[in-house]
Structure formats: C-alpha cells, structure tokens
C-alpha cells in the first residue's frame, strides 16, 4: 500500500489509473442506483456483454475500440429495451440470447484481427493501468453527459423507475425515458469497461449502489454514497493490487463484493437484534403492566 502511494507521485500511468477509477465511479454511482432500484441488473449485464461485439468489429475495421464499444452498447440498450417493452413474457430468454450473440460476434472479429489476441483479456477483465491519458477526456465527457441528462430529467427518471403505469398516466413518454435510461446505462458500461473489463462491469455497476441502498433512502443520496463507495473501492483496489502485482480489475471487484457481503450480513444481524429487543421490551411491559 505505502509503495503505491510512493509510486503514485513518480509514475504518471498510476495517476492516470487513479483518475480513471474516480471518473468511472461517478457513472457507477449515478446509473448503478437506477439499475439497483429498477432491478435491471440482468438487462445491464446483457448490454455489457454484447459490447464485445462492437469492440471486436471496431478492431477488425480499424476504429478505436472505445467508439465501437459505445456504438454497440447504445444499440444493445435500444434492442434490449425494445425487447423488454414488447415481449415481456420472454424477455429473459431473448436478453440471454443477445448477451451470448454479442460476445460470440466479438470473439470472431477479434480472432480474425491480426495481433490483437492478447488484448482480449484486457477487454474482458479490464486493465486500469493501461488506460491512455487521452481516454480520461473521453471518460470525463461521458460523466458530464450523464450528470447533465440525469440532472435535467431526474423527475421523469424517478417517475419511470418508480411506477411505469403511473408515469404513463401522467403523460410522461415512458418508452422514450426508459430507453434513454438504458442508453445511459450503456454509456456507463463503456466507462467502466476500461477499469474492470466487461465481464466484471456488472459488479461495479450494482454493488456500490446496493450497499448505499442499505443506508440511505432516496435516489439522490444513494447516487452520492454509491459514487463515494465506488471511488473508495477503485482507489483501494488499485493500491492493494500494486505491491503484489495483482490485476487491478478483479481486486477492485473483490473489494466491492466483500463490502457488499459484510453490509448485507450486518444489516441482517442488526434487524434481528432490533426484533429481539422489541420482544424483550414487550415482555417487560406485560410484567410491569
């Protein structure tokens, strides 16, 4: 750990990695909150994994893979959202199919692209230490986009996330805002891919927000706390992994996962303790009364 902080001042790639982690946490805090409260983790997983198709195609045709990822994520979000709105009965099977097809397309493209075989691992599991400094601007502008859209449409998003039928009755264009929400989730997935890779994206998208949901009870507070937790686990993960030379992505995800498990267990213990106290209090009341 102390090695990390010593190295941080020397190596710009570490500084870049740290900033990338912090930028990613903004996305994970904002959109992770919606994913958790609206229970669309499976949809988000489908979007995240079909991104590989776009990255593979971009590599094959010689574009920036991040642009390919962004395009694929947006298309996947629209497709999956449309499936969810039109085919409610079969949505899980269809999303599962899109999930697998997207990955298969990506792997085929990557296999046929010369010289990129080794990079496959870094797309799947991320490599925060290899984030180029230019990418920070890209990530930063995606964050600004998320903040502006979520800020402007927070009531529409709240209404659609809370109660779609009621939102429709209040004349909110539910389909539009639902799809917009998924597109923003897709943007976040692209932000997070750089840090933890697309296999592990789901963890960083849901775990900080889920932990935040244990302690605060409004969307705004959840977003803030989830962002802070995301920033903490990505910084800590980077620091812990640096000394023993572990891959940073999985370390970050493990930290987030442990935080979640500890939080769930302690919340449950607390609830049980409270219940027991109330029973004891009732017992003493009936004796004295």
């Amino acid at each position: 750990m102390s090695e990390f902080f010593a190295a941080l001042s020397e190596h710009t790639f570490l500084q870049t990695a740290l900033v990338a982690g912090l930028l990613a946490s903004i996305g994970c805090g904002l959109m992770g909150t919606y994913v958790v409260v609206k229970r669309i983790a499976f949809l988000a997983g489908g979007i995240a994994h079909s991104v590989l198709g776009g990255m593979g195609a971009a590599l094959y045709f010689g574009f920036d893979p991040l642009i390919g990822a962004l395009a694929a994520a947006v298309i996947a979000a629209l497709l999956i959202g449309w499936v969810r709105l039109r085919w409610q009965a079969r949505e899980d099977t269809l999303i599962g199919a899109l999930w697998a097809i997207g990955m298969a397309v990506g792997i085929l493209f990557i296999a046929k692209t010369l010289g990129y075989g080794t990079d496959l691992m870094s797309y799947l599991f991320g490599n925060i230490l290899l984030v180029p400094a230019e990418s920070l601007w890209f990530m930063g502008s995606l964050d600004v986009l998320l903040l502006v859209v979520v800020g402007a449409y927070r009531y529409q998003f709240l209404a659609v996330a809370f109660d779609e039928e009621h939102a429709r009755l209040r004349d909110i264009p539910v389909t539009f805002f639902y799809l917009l929400l998924l597109v923003l989730v897709a943007v976040t997935v692209v932000l997070l891919i750089q840090v933890v890779g697309l296999i592990l994206v789901l963890a960083l998208l849901t775990l900080p927000a889920a932990v935040a949901g244990h302690y605060v009870h409004s969307l705004g507070a959840m977003m803030l706390l989830a962002t802070l937790l995301g920033a903490a686990v990505s910084t800590l993960g980077l620091a812990v992994s640096y000394g023993p030379d572990l891959p940073a992505g999985p370390t970050i995800v493990l930290l987030a996962g442990s935080l979640y498990v500890v939080s769930v267990l302690s919340m449950r213990a607390l609830a049980r303790h409270r219940a027991r106290l109330s029973v004891i209090a009732a017992g003493t009341r009936s004796k004295t009364g």
Binding site: V37, A159, F162, E164, A167, R170, H217, S218
Partner: peptide, 19 residues
C-alpha cells in the same frame, strides 16, 4: 404497480402525482 422496496418517501411519491 411499484416495488415496496423502492427508496422513496411518501412526500416524493405524492409529488410525482403533480407531473
């Protein structure tokens, strides 16, 4: 037609009726 676990206060839920 909403989940009872959604983090929202009564005040906020009623406010959505204003939309």
């Amino acid at each position: 037609s909403f989940s009872r676990e959604f983090p929202i206060t009564v005040e906020q839920a009623v406010l959505l009726g204003r939309i």
